[in-house]
Design a protein around this nucleic acid. Sequence first.
RNA 1: GGGCUUGUGGCUUAGCUUGGACAUAGCGCCGGGCUUCUAACCCGGAUGUCGGGGGUUCAAAUCCCCCCAAGCCCGCCA
Length: 556
Amino acid sequence: MLMLLEKRTILEHVLRESTGMHDVLLAEGGEHADLATTVAFALAKLNKQAPARIAQDLVAELSKHPELAGITIEAKGPYINFIFGREYVSETLKAAVQPGYGSLEKKTTRVVLEHTSANPNGPLHVGHIRNSIIGDTLARAFRKAGYRLEVQYYVNDMGRQIAIVVWGFIHLDNTQAVGEKEDAHIARIYIAANREIEKDPEITQQVNELMQLVEKGDTPTVKKFRNEVSRCLEGFEVTMKNLNVAHDRFVWESDFIRNGYTERIINRIRKLPQARQEETLALDLSEFGFENKYVIRRSDGTSVYAARDLAFHAWKGANFDRVIDVLGADHKLIGAQLQCTMKLLGEKVPEIVHFEFVSLPEGSMSTRAGKFISADDLITEINKRAYDEVTARRPELDEPARRAIARSVGLAAVRYDIVKVSPEKSTVFNWKEALDFERQSGPYIQYSHARACSILEKAGPFEECYELETPTEIALAKQIAKLPMVIERVIAELHPHILATYSRELADTFNSFYHFDPVLKSEGKVRNRRLTLVKAAQNTLKESLETLGIDAIRTM
RNA sequence: GGGCUUGUGGCUUAGCUUGGACAUAGCGCCGGGCUUCUAACCCGGAUGUCGGGGGUUCAAAUCCCCCCAAGCCCGCCA
């Protein structure tokens, strides 16, 4: 299954043996080769010989090596190129036509992945869903890579924001408009309550009282908080379902007060040499480069968010082998403080994937100020566009069929538009790009897949043949061969955009093949081998799309 | 003020971990391709001081230092 990885390992081993170098500088060969090495440069320096000469000699030696049979080895100046032969291509095809291609071997490692975890004070907006889509794509990649995975949503149900919501529901007109979604309703009250607070700072005191009541466990107040948070989460779940995003478990922050975990972790922190107990309990992490003290408990004895978060992560660490959080860049400092403290406590240190902010052309988003584009609005708009597009292209289909395709196409556009950018890049939301269904979009990849499906459907039964000939055929097979390694890289680097780039390149290569090498019009063995290749490409596109959380629709 | 992240053709973007062969692609622009397997496509062309400066190296978008710009963070908020 891991053909490419296997070849690489063998090559590395042989190269080490024949050069005596530890680092044999093996890399992807780009357009020149499947793999290539620049080790001749390094040897040139040691041996005081011309690099090209060394490369030539090395190629002569390597070509005789029995383990490298079937690999074309050539020196191009100082570069040594390795081009894999027919066996590699046919093995790739055999693997790639199998269901589930790209999956790695099952592992016993239990992984917990937390993502989204937005405060329940208004609908998910285009910033939050960057978190959802990065997190959900990573989750799919982890499952594809064979890990045992649980996906969690951490519900912040005792924050100031939610106290403001509850205050609004008590003191303001709280009627829900007809057809108004729960999370949109909550945002409306939250925004209104914030306006009142600006006008009358006295209200802040009332909000503080609500927070204290919750911390004390006052039943009616706790119930009010839970009620509004639950309603907001209902709205979130609708949005996430529309994005093909799912969680296995919702974990409530306040549970970590009630079950005593927070108290327990505070008692352990108190014993750390870095603990400073004055009015507050805080950690002095300056020896690790953190300037400010890390407050764990307030002077009034109540816990802060950080304490609950530590309790939550200790619980995760006790139940899973790897703990991964997907968090916005605004959490970088507190994330690092959390990691540092977990280490001091001897607990499992969470791995954190940070993504930079999404802003609007007019500036940063704010739920409080009502300045945001909700994910629901984006989905509605994109589905409308997709439906018009499908109707224009496929007028013969009935409405439900067109609606179904439009939904999948819209979803593909949203997810791909967000996942294609590397997480550490801050972005500005752009309607034009979000609504683009052309190249470098999700629908573009879906389209390639649909074309492949169409060919296979028209072809009917055929005998599989794994021997390819033309350059476009071989180029496509070699692209197909990379999927398992791409999955592995996504997991190793926690960078889902690698899969997005790969999938687009695979679609490019398929479209090129589609253009140059006729399939159905060819005959005999050529037809069979091209159909086999189309089947492998279709399956690889399908597995890639589904790992991206995009529907691999058969027609569009 | 300090810290983290980013800066690649007009716009968006890959590559940076592990330095190496003409810097990846898309949008837009110019030109071409549907009696042919779905043109949401394909082919060709123009467009780059890889933010700026210094350094290391046979070789720097990639490593090191300085500077500039943008985003984020620096609360007994969450």
